[in-house]
């Protein structure tokens, strides 16, 4: 009995599932172009993909960064419809030739998600350099991580296109590393209670803005949008029409001959 009921209800449920739009939100993959800031000479691209489970997959490829050094990186911005964007050098209010993180924040917004390599991703981990990705000896940085939906601030996936990726860490004096000799101590780190961190480590090197978007998950192959059921309809009509005309011609020929033959005999 219950089995029979299950048999009956299953198609109904399936039909309902198929009939209603399956998701209110689109899975999408947002392309970000990382542009140099503070004459870092760096460049990069990033992809932010919202999965159908609401997770966020982040992939960053940068080059030209300070080699063998950690690069703090975050999603900056807001989901409250604020119009943040990447700063240009006019944001350098103290005129030291570098836009510091504090100077950039009014333009690109506060830290929204800290893109750490492991563990916590909250704003509080913004300066957790021990969990930030490290550029290799050539200054290339690869970062891939999927942050679970539960660990994302509300609205992240819906506002992916409003967020900016910022990667920090410049080499002002060109000695291949972060040190106090370049730009002194980081006022940002100091205000967060961390002493002895060079300003070079916290000044932004790259800021990314959305440059495009793609499907979040690409279907396999072509699309089966047709069963051919009306494909031969024209041919059938053409065929029928042709046969009818042929039959009409046949009748005309036969009746003509019949009317012709007797008249000849009569003569």
């Amino acid at each position: 009995m219950t089995f029979r009921r299950a048999l009956l209800t299953a198609p109904v449920v399936a039909t309902l599932l198929l009939a209603t739009p399956t998701a209110a939100l689109a899975d999408e993959s947002v392309q970000v172009k990382l542009l140099e800031l503070n004459h870092s000479g760096a460049s990069g691209t990033a992809t932010l993909t919202a999965t159908d489970r609401g997770d966020l997959r982040i992939s960053i490829r940068s080059r030209g960064l300070v080699p063998n050094s950690p690069h703090a990186q975050h999603l900056h911005g807001s989901t409250a419809g604020m119009d943040f964007h990447c700063p240009d050098m006019s944001a350098d209010r103290d005129g030291n030739g570098y836009v510091s993180t504090e100077e950039g924040m009014p333009v690109y917004g506060d830290i929204f998600v800290s893109l750490t390599t492991a563990g916590d991703t909250a704003k509080a981990s913004g300066l957790a350099v021990d969990r930030m990705p490290v550029a290799d000896a050539s200054g290339n940085l690869r970062y891939d991580r999927t942050i679970a939906a539960a660990d994302l601030p509300p609205g992240t996936v819906e506002h992916l296109k409003d967020l900016h990726i910022v990667q920090h860490g410049v080499d002002a004096d060109g000695n291949g590393k972060y040190d106090m000799a370049g730009l002194g101590e980081s006022t940002l780190a100091k205000s967060a209670g961390l002493t002895g961190i060079p300003e070079e480590a916290t000044d932004p090197a790259l800021c990314g803005m959305v440059s495009g978007a793609a499907a979040g998950s690409v279907p396999v192959g072509g699309v089966a949008t047709g069963d051919g059921s009306t494909r031969d309809r024209a041919a059938v009509w053409y065929g029928t029409g042709g046969l009818a005309l042929l039959a009409a011609l046949g009748i005309v020929v036969v009746t003509r001959r019949r009317s012709y033959v007797p008249s000849r005999n009569q003569r």
């Binding site: 689109a26 899975d27 999408e28 959305v210 495009g212 978007a213 499907a215 979040g216 279907p219």
Partner: peptide, 9 residues
């Protein structure tokens, strides 16, 4: 539904 909505980027 695995792609953006019409009118969005």
């Amino acid at each position: 539904t695995g792609a953006p909505t019409p009118g969005a980027l």
